[in-house]
Simulated assay, not measured.
Amino acid sequence: MEAQFEALSALVQSGETLSFTQDFFVKFYQAFLYNDRWLQYIEGVGTTLLVTAMALAIGVILGAVVALVRVTHDQQHPRHRNPVLGIVNVLLKIYVTVIRGTPMMVQLLIMSMVIFASSRNFTMVGALTLGINSGAYVSEIIRGGLMAVDPGQMEAGRSLGLNYITTMVLIVIPQAIRSILPALGNEFIILLKDTSLITVIGGKELLYAAQGVMNRTYEAMFPLVGTAAIYLVLVMIFSWLLSKLERRLAQSDRR
């Protein structure tokens, strides 16, 4: 196969016109097989999954904390409001508003060129930025799910002698998870695809690998189409896992 590629490349350099099949083979070979370039894509996929996992963990933890604080503030008795909780709630509202109201690209550039201007670990800076961004959206998803649970569930738990936190953890949150899981799944899929944006600040993920191949071959179609196909496969796998989780939760409800 390598000998055939070398022969066809020599024909191209001599000015010969290749057939469609020969041209397809040459471009495919130089995009994925020449000098083991497929390893660059594999490395990019590994970095993409690592960034996604880190951003996902940050987003879920941050989003859950923000949602619980805001729900706790909203469920206070009007005559017995905690002023400290009120200040924290205002700050969290500002965080959610700013993050949701500004483009992801701008946030990445601010984090890499202003806040972490001295850092050269652009991949980790990108993961942190994606996690902070996702946290704002996850917080609204979780908050909506918690607010959608019948208030009688909280009252029932408190009437059994459980405190607020125990009632929330054992009764309210499990019910909310079932309703917010599809929306969380969509957010996680968006997060996986948004990892491609960190290429702008120098993050070495999948699209970065494809751009490296493009710069060497001066051919964009196969690296970009291949990258799109890899992202599609990753999203399909993630969607399949999510559907299995949803079915398992539905089966547990029937029992």
Rank of each mutant, 00 (worst) to 15 (best):
E6D: 15
L8A: 02
S9T: 13
L11A: 12
V12P: 15
Q13C: 02
Q13V: 06
S14H: 15
G15E: 04
T17P: 15
T17R: 13
Q22L: 03
Q22F: 03
D23C: 03
V26Q: 07
K27P: 11
Q30D: 07
Q30R: 08
Q30S: 04
L33Q: 14
N35Q: 14
W38S: 07
I42S: 14
E43I: 07
L50H: 11
V51F: 00
T52L: 00
T52M: 02
A53C: 09
G63R: 02
G63C: 01
A64K: 02
V69W: 05
R70T: 04
V71I: 00
H73Y: 14
D74Y: 13
Q75D: 10
Q75W: 12
Q75I: 02
H77Y: 12
H77C: 06
R79P: 14
V84A: 10
L85N: 09
L92M: 04
K93V: 04
I94F: 12
I94C: 11
T97R: 13
I99F: 06
R100Y: 04
G101I: 02
M104D: 15
M105W: 03
Q107Y: 00
L108P: 15
L109Q: 12
I110Q: 10
I110F: 06
M111I: 03
M111T: 01
I115L: 00
A117C: 05
R120T: 08
N121S: 07
N121P: 15
F122M: 15
T123F: 02
T123R: 09
M124F: 13
V125R: 15
G126M: 04
L128D: 14
L130G: 12
L130R: 13
L130K: 12
G131P: 10
I132R: 12
I132G: 08
S134P: 14
V138L: 02
I141D: 08
I141F: 00
G144K: 03
G145N: 01
L146C: 02
A148Y: 01
D150G: 11
Q153N: 05
Q153P: 13
Q153I: 01
M154E: 08
S159E: 01
S159H: 03
L160E: 10
G161N: 05
L162I: 00
I165H: 13
T167D: 05
M168N: 03
V169I: 08
P174Y: 02
Q175I: 00
Q175T: 01
Q175C: 02
A176K: 05
I180E: 07
I180R: 05
L181T: 03
E187F: 00
F188T: 06
F188L: 06
I190K: 12
K193R: 06
D194C: 03
D194L: 00
S196D: 07
I198Y: 11
I201Q: 12
G202F: 00
L206I: 01
A209R: 10
A209Y: 08
A209N: 11
G212R: 07
M214P: 15
T217G: 04
G226Y: 03
G226Q: 07
T227M: 04
T227W: 05
A228G: 13
A229E: 11
I230T: 01
L232C: 11
V235Y: 04
M236E: 07
M236R: 08
I237E: 05
W240T: 09
L241A: 08
L241R: 06
S243F: 08
L245Q: 06
R248P: 14
A250I: 00
Q251R: 12
S252A: 10
S252P: 15
S252D: 13
